[in-house]
Write a protein that binds this DNA or RNA. Structure first.
Lengths: 244, 244
DNA sequence: CCAAAAGTGTTGTTGATACACCCATGT
DNA sequence: ACATGGGTGTATCAACAACACTTTTGG
């Protein structure tokens, strides 16, 4: 689910770390934020300073308001942390083990989101939270069931990325074919053949070749491409299938 | 399908239609029950007799208890209606539009389940609810957002059935290859080639050929096969991929 | 010149697709 | 005999994997 979220935030919510009660009692929101930095898939984690989980890291969390859908609440919470809107957001599922939080019964609706690292670096300078990027295989022991939520979201990302061109949300607008290939290699944890990858992705005719090349690289500069959602839309309407 | 209530059910819950509050306030469960009858994919719907949605049909619903996971609650509610256990159950997602139920704010965790029609016919003779099977394209206008939940679950079924051999849950233990093909045709809404389907499915070596044939059919009797979860498990451990 | 990545070409193999055809059985 | 579905065989084409090769550019 993608959606936009306007500048004027309707409601600022109390941080996750607080022990404040949700308006809808017993329901929280947790959101895994993925990003791709050069060669590595990374996750944004939030440091918890107060409460029972003080000193540990967790996925971005929050609470829904009474008059908003949980999906919108997730967008709002994301905006509060990153100042980003127009983010790719997808619901995972509800995590509902009665013992997932020791002190009280609370279920959480899990989400994952894909952000372009450049946009994040520009916008997310101010935040109430202390947040940090972790390489996906260097994630520490997290609060509650957040390790489970994270590993579930990674699986989901691996699945989805094969079926729909959502990976582009992790890249800058203009990218090279090799960057794109490295992204897939990193997410899927496999090695790919350069030549075969090119043929396959170009054959899909999803990408627009730009009149631009890489700059300041110490080797032959590669052509830049961009992903065009309009083209994708037209192709899917014709029964196109992105199967990676 | 109305009648008395019996058997020892672990926890008796109030029916969905009642306006009773859940222990975890604001959270309900809705479960789409799929089945395959000869040629048609069908859904089990429950008739609502009391409350604001009296006279209309909906998906099977219920409320969780404080000390059980929502997944377990779904299994319990399913058992209460169908007397079936050991059922294939998968969570869809949370449906959370603040206006999805007019009178109060309640989110629901959606599930779908696949049942073998023969087992159902044997076991589900008794139930507090009036329930009826509907062909998938003859489903009426349902209560709340249940039409949305249903169409979402159908999409999910179509996706999952291509990636994992879950379709077998809809068939009797012993089946013919053509039955299996018809199942896929019906779920995916496509036509398939008999010969090619055979080759493909047999080539996967998922099926066990039985020493048995169809009986009482007015044409050449077909060999019966069964799906062996053990074989599937072994294959997946070796990196097998069921991609339909 | 060399390193490093960009980009092209070739070849063998596999699997999907579209058929045509024969077989067994009840009415 | 014929309708109905069961079951086999085959030719063609597209996709994929593996790999060798040439090109461009900065240092």
């Amino acid at each position: 689910m993608t959606s936009s979220f306007s500048k004027n935030i309707p409601k600022i919510n109390t941080p996750v770390t607080a022990d404040s009660k949700s308006f809808i009692e017993g329901i929280s929101i947790d959101c895994v934020i993925f990003s791709f930095d050069k060669k590595n898939l990374e996750v944004l984690l939030v440091h918890h300073a107060i409460g029972e989980s003080a000193g540990r890291w967790g996925v971005l969390g929050g609470n829904p308001e009474l008059d908003e859908s949980i999906d919108n609440a997730a967008l709002r919470i994301l905006y509060e942390l990153t100042s980003l809107d127009n983010i790719y957001l997808e619901q995972l599922k509800a995590f509902t083990d009665p013992d997932r939080v020791k002190s009280e019964r609370v279920i959480t609706i899990g989400y994952y989101t894909l952000v372009n690292r450049e946009d994040y670096n520009i916008k997310a300078s101010v935040s109430v939270f202390e947040a940090k990027w972790f390489k996906i295989n260097e994630v520490p022991d997290l609060i509650f069931d957040h390790n489970e939520i994270l590993s579930y979201s990674l699986k989901q990302l691996q699945n989805r990325v094969r079926q729909a061109p959502i990976g582009f949300n992790l890249l800058p607008e203009k990218f090279t074919l090799l960057q794109l290939m490295h992204l897939y290699e990193e997410i899927l944890g496999i090695e790919m053949d350069k030549s075969n990858f090119r043929r396959k992705i170009l054959h899909m005719k999803l990408l627009v070749e730009l009149d631009e090349k890489q700059k300041d690289v110490s080797h032959r500069a590669a052509k830049l491409y961009k992903f065009d959602p309009e083209i994708y839309k037209k192709l899917t309407e014709k029964g196109f299938n992105f199967e990676f």
